[in-house]
């Protein structure tokens, strides 16, 4: 479904992603892990078209998407969440999620300005779909309220619902459980698994090893922009280089969170 070949990104001499190649197959949960500054978020920005890649190519559903605008990539079926939750505080929760339907709907200015039947009908469908996604992520909040006053965990759910409203085939989640408490973390892990079983492929960047090891089918470890290991969670955990360069230093943390 997604194939990345020899992907590189330089920022004024600094190499953020270096000759990276990997594949994501359909209905897989693939996690990207690695220390801070390993280039994980940059990779997401390259995939979604927010930053142009320096070299290499990205094939999504058989189509080369390098150099395409972000909104075109979204239309192709890739959606994402952001590390620090980028939702729109100038809209209600429902409207935030309704925005996600934007690329799946097509009424033009004239249709909506004149409130043609088609536009009214479409708007009704957008609303229904948005409410459905709010339910899917399990967000209990007044959909007409502003998201500005929501606690962080719920803001994250709004963002998930918005991403899901775009009917993605591939969903990129940037640190989906950072800043969440244990219960919320479980809730999100459960949600990701449910999404996979509904046919959505998920890629996530995450630091919480217990979540990564529990839900991933495949793990890719990055450091300094390059791939240092890739494979089943179990294999990666045993990989000596990974332990030396990354897991080793966080093992104590990872173990302390387990009872």
């Amino acid at each position: 479904m997604l194939e990345v070949n020899g992907l590189s990104k330089e920022f004024g001499g600094v190499i953020a992603v270096n000759d990276l190649s990997f594949r994501v197959v359909e209905r897989q949960i693939k996690s990207i892990i690695g220390p801070n500054g390993a280039g994980k978020t940059t990779l997401f920005n390259l995939l979604t078209g927010l930053a142009p890649c320096t070299r290499g190519n990205i094939t999504f559903l058989g189509k080369n998407i390098c150099g395409l605008k972000p909104h075109v990539i979204a239309e192709l079926g890739m959606s994402r969440s952001f590390q620090n939750v980028e939702i729109f505080d100038n809209m209600s929760i429902l409207e935030n999620v309704m925005l996600g339907r934007h690329c799946r709907t097509g009424c033009g200015v004239l249709n909506v300005a004149l409130r043609r039947k088609r536009a009214v009908e479409e708007e009704r469908k957008i609303r229904e779909e948005a409410l459905r996604q709010i339910e899917t992520v399990g967000l209990d909040a007044d959909p007409d309220a502003s998201p500005a006053s929501l606690p962080f965990g719920k803001r994250r759910l709004v963002e998930f619902a918005r991403a899901l409203a775009t009917s993605p085939k591939l969903l990129l989640l940037d640190e989906p459980v950072s800043g969440l408490n244990i219960r919320e973390t479980e809730q999100v892990a459960e949600l990701i698994r449910r999404l996979r079983s509904s046919g959505i492929t998920v890629m996530l960047v995450e630091h919480d090893m217990s979540v990564v090891m529990e839900i991933s089918d495949d793990v890719l470890v990055m450091d300094y922009g390059t791939k240092i290991a890739e494979g089943k969670p179990r294999d990666v955990q045993r990989n000596e280089e990974v332990i030396a360069r990354y897991l080793g230093q966080s093992r104590s943390n990872a173990e302390s969170t387990k009872p």
Binding site: T48, L50, H71, I73, E75, F88, L99, H102, C103
Partner: peptide, 8 residues
């Protein structure tokens, strides 16, 4: 940025 990635 967010608007762009949501297909706007």
């Amino acid at each position: 940025t967010a608007a762009n990635t949501m297909g706007v």
